[in-house]
Design a protein around this nucleic acid. Structure first.
Lengths: 226, 226, 226, 226
DNA sequence: CATGAATGAGGCTTCATTCAT
DNA sequence: GATGAATGAAGCCTCATTCAT
């Protein structure tokens, strides 16, 4: 509705609440999070949370927006850094950026993956519908929608660039490469997320080692036409 | 606790309830599922559901158990079919089996991934603790624990077999290969799940084509040392 | 949805809850009534109230339905009693019946008047809309709608009968007579309601005396053409 | 308490707020009205509303006071206009004035009736008591009390005048006549209000026609002894 | 005086679970 | 074994009111 820039003070306050929400959501999951707890975590009252975020769903979407935004920032920064490098180098750097992002902002990675699942579920009763509606009416939901495709677009562009500058030899379509590569990374992340943030090994495999190997495979895929 | 074989009648009834629970969980997610709905879906009363499953969590674990069991069945069947084939062929066939499984029963795939997330979250309040406890006391939770490692063990064995019979040339440790391969597959599944079960294309890429390419990459990984 | 007759037990229980709701609504008004209080008044738990009435609004409508139903019963009974009398006598008896009803079931009279105001208010925000929706979806709302016109139809018929049998001499249209007569009665009731149920006098006028005079006027209206 | 004349500026501001309050109360009723909405409607902030009216109840009473005041004004004006006419003519003119008032400001008519209901309800919990107390402490509540009897006194006087000057032949006590007449008018108004403000017909009866007939009946009552 | 952020008591409603029949 | 009525602990959200700026 109001597209004017919000006051810096308001933005700051919202930020504090999102900080708190993040912690609580990350700790116990959306369903088990109570607005009361989030308020307490933020050191304010429940009412104040509602003053800034009219719905629990909207607050969750604000977290998602922040996560996606941060990811985009980092991807764009990497892209700019590698402006003069080859497409291959850029793509690998982007993959590393994403892996680092997931490692550093563990919960954000989860939230972003969660978001992708949101539109799925078939309605069974009205309640679900109501919840979905609440979500879709949320301002942040629309904000997220606006930027959800940025990562894929960015990476696809860099793959295309690599194909054109000859650094990427694989002649599959960029989208196919993107999906395969991204899928590998997501799988890596998902397995790590599932295992928990603190883990250093999974099934006796050192995660750093796995990471290195994954990047090797990605590079391999990009370099070979088969 | 009671290790005597349950009556066939009881098993049948439980099966019907799990059928219903699956549908409801898949449709609206665990948190939004109501025991009432599950009972209705099963055509029985809420009380009866509780007669067979003392907790919502336990019912969910029963679904997980079924999912994992089914996956194991299919993997074992594939392994047996390829008993006399090379390790490489066996491993690729197992990957295909898993992809088919995820495609056909994609809710099961999700449930199995979900299971891995269960033990994670830090406690903030008592509720979470209570829920986790309820879960861990559930009979099906223990049943799931008993078989959770079967897939990875099975696949690792086949990779080892492939290494020994010379069909797999990659000299990385089987577990590392397993994780990389499984991660790729999970990413594939996850992206498909996120997109929705009915889709035929994703980002203009035909899913069958993607699948074929993914298997190619897997084979490639196994065949090349580095 | 389910048009089968509810079990007598259920009907009985619902009746008890409506009894309690009546008392609470009458005592403090709809807005100030709490479901908790109603439950306590009925000697049951809040949850049980919701088992029978899914909404506070629906419960209120159930009260309205009962009120309107009771009024209809009494009017029909009077009509039957005066089946062989003149239309004039019947109409006067109906007026007396209504006055008695309002006197005896004070709160019911209010509820019925309230109902008439329901569809009015212009929406300003969504909340109001939501409340109205909750109301209109309520089963009892529809039940009330089905019988809301019975009184006016009944009385109009009797006026018509009186015109035909020559006992009512006023040649105005029955509807006009009905509105004028009914309006007088409603005004009487409304002023009494406003004053409170226990009052014997209003502005130094004995209410019984007023009632007698009102009936006189009504008779007068019916007997004189202009 | 403070009997010093308020500044014209303050009076103006209060007036604006009451304007807004009226609209909101009329649209959604007292219980569903939010101070926020009223402030928005007045184009000011919530805090400012509270600066002028310390309580929602007090604001409502201010509306009531305005309504009653306006009615009184109009009745007095009519009385003055008919100073030299007969009592009968004066009374009929007053009835017409009231009908016009109700027609033009029909929310005011409701508010005035509402006011009469205020002192009634039995206490069940503390909330109701608190609300009533808030009301009774309100400055406007006392202001309303001061003028609440003006209409009935005025009309009763005119009836008495009519009896004395021989224009009113009915020998019932003025108060009885007053109540009967007022009741008829209130019923008329109530039925119209219930139907909605915009209606031109009710049950196929033209409202103007009904109004004319009602005045006829009133005149008839006044002119006939019994 | 005006603003609008902050508060927190309170109400409606949900739903896992229990239990009498 | 099955049923479905009963329970009550929670949780989301509202909104009158207060208060610092």
């Amino acid at each position: 509705m109001n597209s004017s820039t919000p006051s810096p003070k308001r933005t700051l306050k919202e930020g504090n609440i999102i900080d708190a929400a993040e912690k609580v959501f990350a700790a116990v999951g959306f369903a088990n999070s109570k607005m009361e707890d989030i308020a307490k975590e933020a050191g304010i009252s429940k009412g104040t949370v509602y003053f800034y975020f009219d719905t629990k769903e909207n607050l969750y979407m604000a977290v998602t927006y922040r996560a996606l935004n941060l990811l985009n920032d980092q991807l764009y920064r990497t892209r700019d850094t590698y402006k003069n490098a080859t497409g291959l180098e850029s793509v690998i750097a982007l993959a590393e950026t994403y892996l680092d992002f997931c490692n550093k902002y563990f919960f954000y990675a989860e939230v972003i993956l969660d978001y992708m699942t949101l539109n799925r579920s078939t309605q069974l009763g009205k309640d679900r519908a109501r919840m979905t509606d609440a979500l879709k009416e949320s301002m942040y939901y629309r904000k997220v929608q606006d930027i959800q495709n940025l990562p894929i677009n960015l990476i696809s562009e860099e793959i295309t660039k690599g194909v054109q500058d000859g650094s990427i030899l694989n002649r599959q379509r960029p989208e196919l490469l993107y999906l395969t590569a991204w899928g590998s990374v997501i799988g890596f992340v998902k397995l790590n997320v599932a295992a928990g943030s603190g883990r250093q090994t999974l099934h006796h495999v050192d995660i750093g080692e796995w990471r290195t190997y994954l990047l090797q495979v990605l590079k391999y895929i990009l370099l070979h036409n088969e």
